[in-house]
Design a protein around this nucleic acid. Sequence first.
RNA 1: GCGGGUGUAGCUCAGUCGGUUAGAGCGCUAGAUUGUGGAUCUAGAGGUCGGGGGUUCAAUUCCCCUCACUCGCCCCA
Length: 415
Amino acid sequence: MAKIQSVRGTHDIVGAAAAGHRNVVEVARNCAHRYAFGDIDTPIFEFTPVFARTMGEGSDVVRKEMYTFTDRGGEDITLRPEFTAGICRAFISGGMQQDLPLKFFAHGPAFRYERPQKGRLRQFHQIDAEILGVKEPGADIEIIALGAEILHDLGVLDRCVLDLNTLGDHDSRQAYREALVTYFSDHRDRLSEDSVDRLDRNPLRILDSKDEGDRAIINDAPLMADYLNPASQDFFATVCEGLNVLGIACNLNQRLVRGLDYYTHTAFEFVTDALGAQGAVIAGGRYDGLIEMLGGPATPGIGWAGGIERLAMLALHMPQPDRPIALVPLGITAEPMALRLCHALRRDGFMVDMGFRGDISRRLKRANKLNARAALILGDDEIAKGMITLRDLDDGSQQDVALDAVAAHLRKLVT
RNA sequence: GCGGGUGUAGCUCAGUCGGUUAGAGCGCUAGAUUGUGGAUCUAGAGGUCGGGGGUUCAAUUCCCCUCACUCGCCCCA
């Protein structure tokens, strides 16, 4: 370990990975803006209770999976493990109640102290969308539609399936939970060790157990649909109808659950089988109880988060990066002239790279490596003529161009 | 937190049933081409064989520990 290395579960995002990353963010943001979502950027750390209160102080997640530390002032701080809680805190502390409804788009890093595996890092990156203050199912429809549209724009929608479920309102959910506990308690002796554990801690999670033996028991478990009160049924029906109107295919998955009490009604995940065990690329749901739990005015909310790394892995095809122009000065007379021209072209909007050293051969090699569209060569010969050599690096043709006509010529090459 | 796999050049990987100077391809540098990139040819640089400890006359190779990556479980806000 003599060599210095990055912290476990962190990655440097460079080159093609950086381009893929940025592509996901830009596509998502463009899309969100078309849906009239505004940008929000909250701090990447918050007072620990912002996250801990909503999760339950004693939960595994809070105790073992957050980056929590005491800062120099003695404050209990946590790096954000997700976006929703911070955005809700911003909503509360910014006094935005009077601006409801609000639609937010955010992106950036998040942190979880977990064992890294494919599609799961300790510092990872998310895109995030939230709608606050809308109790109607229209918000559910819009937030899901936005997710689907982003996947479409990234060219990955056809490799994803939308899993959809409802947890019903608070009462429905409670009734179902009790029914599940009763049912699974009767089969306690046949459940896997993990699921026996879940029975006390988080019974809904038994439903997505991967254990073979559990599966058989789960097949005969009570279904959420049978415990929905009429209002919850209507709500969900409206959501499904809206998706149908928009032509968004979905798979009703009664095993799709959320563990925490503030979740109500719609839960959804866009999943893929192309990424191994971490298959959810965009996941979210309605959290009507969350803001109140954080000490704010009772305000409904719904949102989702999407993993940028996972989306970038899926979105293999990327828009071709812009190609630069290489400026090649030869000799000390040319240097200051080239410097001036370089500046002028850049101000004019061209992407220009001028090497810092080397002869013409070396500089053209670099131009080639940068995938430059053309090279501008300025040496004594050109200076004597009052021209500059414009070399097309795709076909190798060259022509002399007057200095004041360079921009016009380049514009034809770089569309 | 639990289990499997893997760590050898900048990258992708061979290899050593323990034995002098550890290999390839790609990449890099230089030259063929002193004002012309890509292709080709030639030469060169680049490795404490992830780190620490143990066994041994001798360890990159065997053993233990550790770190990291990777696949799955757990968890999933």
